[in-house]
Amino acid sequence: MSEEKKGFFAKLISGLSKTRSNIVSGIDSIFKGFSKIDDDFYEELEEILIMGDIGVVTTEKIIEGLKEKVKENKIKEPEECKELLINTIKEQMDIGENAYEFENQKSVILVIGVNGVGKTTSIGKLAGNLKAQGKKVVLAAADTFRAGAIKQLEEWANRAGVDIISGNEGGDPGAVIYDAVGAAKARNADVLIIDTAGRLHNKKNLMEELKKIDRILEKEYPNVYRETLIVLDGTTGQNALVQAREFMNAANITGIVLTKLDGTAKGGIAVAIQSELSIPVKYICVGEQIDDLEKFNSEQFVNALFTQE
């Protein structure tokens, strides 16, 4: 565990070092200049949260909660108040112990999301990650819609050294999944990961297709551990909340993969999603290399949220 943590920290630092010289001192600098807890102080906090894409509604909720706690505990120092805030969000974002149960069982991971968030890339990384753990992984290229999507996943399968089942572009994704399940069974795979076409959550027939995929898995591959990950672009704003909510209607989402966090975006919308929909972030992506996918660490995430260049 400690080794894993170190790897994560190093990765995040290197991912962030492009933009941020010092991750730790940054947190404090925001709170400097405040000697007491007043309206200006709260306003500053509000600004930080909104600028991190947490959204107005969740930000107000957080600030209200904070104000109450400050009153209750008779907190006077801005420093203490800051810690309280950071810890509250950290606790909220903390993922349960069973978050990665699919690693221990025979499982199928369905990966969904809107267009261009990085589904295929995330799958490539996840496959590499699981393969490195000695798992037998099979990929299913069920994005038969986007031009070049199958080729892209095939390339990732090559890099990760895992098997891939694919159909023809323009073909029926259901058929690909059916075949992939067959292959996963025959080859006794530990994990089957399914790539789906990007779809905007307001396209009803595409969401229906997703339900169909879900049904096929339910029927053809019962008794395996089901994991459904929604991939969200870390640079997305408030619409990510709508996306998550709509996708929840089509599939039983068990976690979030938050991508593109190696830029300046904070991915704060994940806090809003966790608070409103209780979906935990399980992975974050901090680069384009195959090992740039990391398990989520709430401490690092929240610290980054409060860091400004």
């Binding site: 704003g237 990510a240 830029g263 975006a265």
Partner: peptide, 30 residues
């Protein structure tokens, strides 16, 4: 759908490369 980071992205591209025009995508979402 880009959030608060849009400003950083745009100003960096403008500063480092220069922008003549912008195209917004995925506006068929909500």
């Amino acid at each position: 759908m880009t959030g608060q980071d849009a400003v950083n992205v745009a100003s960096n591209f403008e500063e480092k490369i220069g922008i003549d025009g912008v195209i917004l995508t995925k506006l068929d979402g909500d």
